[in-house]
Design a protein around this nucleic acid. Sequence first.
DNA 1: GGCATTTACCTTAGCGGTGAGATACTTTGG
DNA 2: CCAAAGTATCTCACCGCTAAGGTAAATGCC
Lengths: 190, 190
Amino acid sequence: MTDLAGRAGARRPVVSMTAMAQADADAVDLILEQWGRERPDLDCSPMGVIARVTQAQREVYLAQRETFARHGLDAAAFDVLAALRRAGRPYQLTPTALMRTALVTSGAITQRLDRLEEKGLISREPSEDDGRAVLVTLTELGGQALDAALPDHLETERRLLSGLSTDDQQLLAGLLRRLLITLGRTPAAP
Amino acid sequence: MTDLAGRAGARRPVVSMTAMAQADADAVDLILEQWGRERPDLDCSPMGVIARVTQAQREVYLAQRETFARHGLDAAAFDVLAALRRAGRPYQLTPTALMRTALVTSGAITQRLDRLEEKGLISREPSEDDGRAVLVTLTELGGQALDAALPDHLETERRLLSGLSTDDQQLLAGLLRRLLITLGRTPAAP
DNA sequence: GGCATTTACCTTAGCGGTGAGATACTTTGG
DNA sequence: CCAAAGTATCTCACCGCTAAGGTAAATGCC
């Protein structure tokens, strides 16, 4: 486990020259160039970040989908199974907890759980402490499915990031962390 | 903006966060910590970048949706109108060109154009050069809608990025550009 | 020139998510 | 102790996108 405590982005890091000054342009550069021509009165520089976040996420999404499909899963299923797995024994969470980590609505979680239950990857039982609540448990099969997919998933992520040095990856992670923190909704949203 | 101080969940159920000041943790740090406890054999550091890209994109998406809604638009509509606008006079593109910049399927573009045409924001006419092709043109109304939304849109993006200095924003943009470039699909995909 | 291939756009079934709201249980405050 | 407010989950109509496939026009190859 690399030292995640470093907070690379928090102090002002010396700019690694490779980060800028790469002669190559990406799709967003073209968009910015178009706006610069058509609306020179506007400062569109924020798009340079935001649009790239959007495009990067799209690539991530597509790559992950392929990976999950190899294991008979999709992103929604993996999301739930991984949340249960990393919660630790007894691999049990409520739909509400899953809703918060997955950042989807309660209706979406219900449907995800329906599908996962159908496939035998999770089970549902009423909570004994709270008559309203349900306890979702990772089944043996679900744990196996997750454990099979997880290394492949990580390998995909590593491949996606392979264009950046380890230092730059940490730098990027630090910047994004600061972005997320200022966007509110930090650990567990209301 | 940094409210959420008295959260119940973060205080107790955790081990000591390595050397990190607690105030600087985001949701992804918690996830990485969980994986570190449950699967110390795996190097999950790639998630520190990928998961944050995903979460950041989600925040962006939600903020943009609010902004667009104030102007009677949604992200899909804005995407198309903006592509036409920044293409310059005569504000005309084919569905295929729009498909490429929007990164959605042709079916999605058809539907988007149906909706926009219905609202009078674009018009469609058959191309004279190519009997298969269609020319999509931004109408007067469409141009007005876009021009009204664009400054607000940029203001939203600026607000989203307000936690980072201008230098850090550029640094972030540069890192993401390199990421996108190595992910292939750079300017116009085949 | 004629046939196969490619390209451009549209059509449609199906899917997963949202948003609104229903239901049942729990907590709170007089 | 009870009513009101809050919480947990599920239900369902609707929506936009994808994937697969259809039609028509352009292109290429001989």
